[in-house]
Design a protein around this nucleic acid. Structure first.
Lengths: 148, 148
DNA sequence: TACAATTAGTTAGCTGGCTAAATAAATACG
DNA sequence: CGTATTTATTTAGCCAGCTAACTAATTGTA
């Protein structure tokens, strides 16, 4: 049994449960990612590029809902790892296109697989209905908060 | 409308929805916390102490499910802010007790209030049943993952 | 055309999180 | 009793995230 947070107001909120569940999830994903040489969060950058290669830095930041400086340094590290490269945009000299290398593309399967393994463990014992309902509610939370 | 992540496998998982919802939630809480001079995560330390003052550093790390070095530096900063103090444990010279100052205790209300405001916005439009069900599922996710 | 305003990225510096390694005290044990 | 082991905390250094401030290129406009 896990304590849900005592008697205080914060510990009783759904937001608290959300934060703790997410922390555990990120921890599990992070541990698995370490086995392929990645840090938690970096797989999100790769995921966007697997979906659409050649994004501009700013587009990447917007899709990740992260600030430009964050993306800037992450790209530097991923580039140093040989997973992607920045190519100057011929149409705009202050932009660049982020392009996956073969090495970066090859990580797709292993990363999707490990994410899937965590998924199975995280939601073990839940029906498809429960899981689907949970997902829907989480999307609503995100919508509610990203407004303002 | 918010994109849920395209066609890739990761974007379709409940874990992905969890991560994105949590990111939005942490962002909202963090913005509100900034108004009382705190950073996201620090309120969790205070919360534990509001529940039980005088915890040892290691106990705090365990309850937060965080590593000792993380707690060590956070305590240093919170102490520098005058929110708490470390008192050496007379029964064990290598331990200490973390004790709130009046300033630290006074933050309870404002922090609980702002957390509550985010709670209302985050789960706006959800019935109590949905919210309660969501909370229960999130606790189960946490239990599933904190096992191994 | 020349200059102002906007836009794209980067750098610096802060925070929460982590691991590995060092310090120091308590405990176990021969 | 003295040494070895375990335990509590800190330090160093890495990464993701942030804001503020800077650079450089594009665009708007007088």
């Amino acid at each position: 049994m896990i304590q849900t947070g005592g008697t205080g107001r914060i510990g009783e909120t759904a937001g608290f449960a959300l934060a703790k569940a997410c922390k555990a999830h990120r921890g599990s994903v992070g541990a698995a990612l370490a086995e392929v040489g990645l840090h938690a969060g970096q797989e999100m950058v790769l995921r966007e590029l697997w979906e659409e290669d050649g994004l501009k830095g700013g587009e990447l930041a917007a899709r990740l809902a992260v600030e430009p400086p964050t993306v800037s340094r992450m790209l530097g590290r991923l580039e140093a790892c040989g997973l992607l490269e920045r190519r100057r945009d011929p149409e705009d000299a202050r932009s660049f296109r982020v392009c996956l290398t073969a090495k970066g593309r090859d990580l797709r399967r292993p990363v999707e697989d490990l994410w899937q393994r965590v998924e199975e463990r995280a939601f073990e014992g839940m029906s498809e209905e429960e899981k689907h309902g949970l997902k829907g509610l989480l999307v609503r939370v995100r919508e509610n908060l990203s407004a303002g």
